[in-house]
């Protein structure tokens, strides 16, 4: 189980290895807060969809399995949307149209079709947690670098008088604004992907 979890986080990372879910990765990774919010929302939908698809795999007729999966995924997405709107309206506004678009995230449908459909509930939960954690980790890494280079700040949790924003001297006054744009996100993803590939190749050579 632990091996499957680790594998789905790193070796089968949805963004850096499978290149799935790139649209939200580009769009919401402008700040760490948005990236973590989107990651957790996706993790919730992924987990719910995997559990139900795995439970219903013998009930759902194979001819109409994709529409049935879409109903399950869209239901969990709508639930996330309502919960965010009710309890975190600012994050809901920041994530904008990308919250309802979780329903068409390839990671979720891919996970339901390729894994949950063929495995037991427990294994599907572990796989969903791994994929969700891998997606959240990837978004966090992209957002950290984009925020650092694009605005010269790092946003953490606000505690007491500390507003949660660390301003990097030099970079905060003259940030590389390109990294705040979609093109910058592509560069960051490409550099991180190249780094991970280099690490994997180095391990193989050893």
């Amino acid at each position: 189980m632990l091996k499957l979890f680790n594998k789905s986080i790193l070796k089968e990372n949805p963004i850096f290895v499978m290149a799935l879910g790139l649209c939200p990765a580009l769009a919401v990774s402008t700040t760490i807060e948005n990236a973590l919010g989107m990651g957790i929302c996706t993790l919730f939908v992924l987990l719910g969809a995997n559990i139900f698809v795995s439970l219903l795999k013998d009930f759902i007729p194979s001819k109409v399995r994709i529409p049935a999966y879409i109903v399950v995924i869209a239901t969990f997405t709508a639930i996330v949307e309502m919960i965010l709107q009710a309890f975190s309206p600012e994050l809901y506004q920041n994530l904008g149209v990308f919250v309802p678009l979780i329903a068409v995230n390839c990671i979720i449908l891919g996970s339901a079709e390729a894994f949950a459909n063929k495995n037991k509930v427990g294994t599907s939960i572990v796989y969903a947690l791994g994929q969700g954690a891998g997606f959240t980790l990837a978004l966090f890494m992209i957002a950290f670098l984009r925020e650092l280079l694009g605005t010269g700040t790092v946003t953490l949790l606000a505690i007491g008088t500390f507003d949660g924003v660390i301003r990097i001297p030099g970079l905060a006054s003259a940030p590389i604004r390109m990294f705040g744009l979609a093109a910058g996100a592509f560069f960051v993803i490409a550099f991180l992907q190249a780094f991970l590939n280099w690490q994997t190749m180095r391990k193989k050579e050893k």
Partner: peptide, 30 residues
């Protein structure tokens, strides 16, 4: 097939209705 899809949609509608009842007052207040 139609019965099974209807059953899935009905359960989904019930779940969404329940979450809507819980979250609606908070959304209106926001």
């Amino acid at each position: 097939i139609g019965f099974k899809l209807t059953a899935i949609c009905m359960v989904a509608s019930l779940a969404l209705g329940f979450v809507n009842v819980v979250t609606r007052p908070h959304i209106e207040e926001n």
